[in-house]
Amino acid sequence: MTLQTPEPPSTRQTPGPTLYAPGPEALHIPPPDLSSVLGAPAAQTGATGLSVPSSGAGTSAAQAGVPGPSVPSSVLAAPTAQVGATGLSVPSTVLAAPAAQVGATGLSVPSFDPSAPPSVPPAEPYLRPGPVLLRPSPLPPLPAAPVLPPGPGTGRPQLWLVATETHEDSAARYASLVLDAEELARAGEFRRPGDRATYLCAHVGLRRLLGAHLGVAPRGVTVERAPCPCCGEPHGRPVLPDGRLHFSLSHCEGMSLIAVATTPVGVDIERIPAPHLVAELAEVLHPAESAELAALAQDLRPAAFARVWTRKEAYLKGTGVGLGADPSSEYVGSGPAPTAPAGWLLADVAVPSGHQAAVAVRR
């Protein structure tokens, strides 16, 4: 399988990832299948090429790309709309602008026709195969309590982003009250202060979120290891004893990503590698993925490799095998839409520039 070198932005016709923004459950707006709007006039925008049908962006059900649900205008007009299981916050000043550029995803909201009728097709699972870009909620630093969005539900993970720069001081201050002895000892083993700070921020954030879901103090959360799927020994993925919730944590320098779901879930966040490293790293990928990278222009390969790797590692973490499995055994693809292994849902996650992230959830 080979990817062609992308055409210049002005001539590309392939729709890019859709910003995933399901509506709050309290409003009882079912997430629709928006395949019916593919033929509508759409604005191709930003680096990701997000399509927003011009006929529906300001109606009572704002439709953004494919797939994804409708968000009522009453939500979009609020000062800050908390949207769906991922906890997406969208300032109204952005959504009200004729063409607002939003972060790394390049979201553009065109002008709209208020008279256009809403369309709410039958409900579908929130996370579906296709070019979908999920946006995590930023976790507020201590002492603020996390505000949990509705869910999570089947195929609808909650995603939280933890920036080390924002959380470093509060995590260091509260770590002894939140983390257990093993986590504190592990933090002390890091030689680089930046790595230690990111570890503390990630694990303090994880315990805060799990504690909020379970209704217990963060330090009262008990985490165990599931049996390894390969050998049966207790060194598989971290789990809660009662199995009510599943979670996954990933961090790289300066950034952490946390997922909470009702089924096994995996996340991964990585810095996009330097160009000279890609050729060597690509050797461990599926042969078709390596061929796809080789067919791209050299300056496009680092981001494409990061897409492949984060998708692959998120899936392997979700299974509990991690990198103990052969990374070349499963194909997840390097293009705009990931290819999910059987029984799993797979999507990219919107993270700050210079990073790539993905989430995998078992169906």
Rank of each mutant, 00 (worst) to 15 (best):
M1S: 10
P8M: 09
Q13V: 15
T14C: 06
T14D: 12
T18N: 07
Y20L: 14
P24K: 07
L27N: 06
P30R: 12
L34R: 12
G39R: 11
A40N: 11
P41D: 11
T45A: 14
A47T: 13
S51T: 12
A57S: 12
G58F: 02
T59A: 05
A62V: 08
Q63L: 13
P67N: 10
P67L: 11
P67A: 09
S74W: 13
S74C: 10
L76H: 12
A77S: 13
T80Q: 04
T80P: 00
V83W: 03
V83K: 00
G84P: 03
G84W: 09
T86L: 11
L88F: 02
L88Y: 02
S89I: 01
P91A: 12
L95K: 01
L95G: 04
L95Q: 04
A100P: 00
G106I: 14
L107G: 03
V109F: 13
P114F: 03
P118C: 05
S119M: 12
P122G: 11
E124A: 14
P129M: 11
V132L: 09
V132Q: 11
V132T: 13
L139R: 03
P140W: 15
L142D: 02
P143N: 06
V147C: 05
P150E: 09
G151Q: 09
G151E: 07
G155R: 09
G155A: 12
L161H: 03
E165G: 09
E165K: 11
H167I: 00
D169E: 13
Y174M: 12
A175E: 14
L177Q: 13
V178C: 07
L179D: 07
L179Q: 13
A181Y: 03
L184E: 14
L184G: 15
E189V: 01
G194Y: 08
D195H: 15
D195Y: 09
T198C: 10
Y199S: 03
Y199V: 08
L200E: 11
C201K: 10
A202R: 03
H203T: 07
H203D: 08
H203Y: 08
R207C: 10
R208T: 10
L209T: 02
H213P: 09
H213R: 14
G215V: 12
V216E: 15
V216N: 13
A217R: 14
E224N: 05
R225S: 10
P227F: 04
C228N: 02
P229W: 00
C231D: 07
C231S: 04
G232M: 04
E233Y: 05
E233W: 05
P238M: 06
V239Q: 06
L240T: 09
D242F: 14
G243A: 13
S250E: 04
C252K: 01
G254D: 08
M255P: 00
S256M: 05
L257T: 02
I258P: 00
A259Q: 06
A259H: 07
V260E: 02
P264L: 09
V267N: 01
I269G: 06
L285A: 07
P287G: 15
A294G: 07
R301I: 06
W309R: 08
R311P: 05
K312V: 00
K312T: 07
E313M: 15
Y315C: 06
Y315K: 04
G322P: 03
L323F: 10
G324L: 12
G324V: 01
E330Y: 08
Y331F: 15
V332C: 15
A337Q: 07
A350F: 00
A350K: 00
V351M: 03
P352S: 06
S353G: 06
A357P: 00
V361R: 00
V361G: 01
R362K: 11
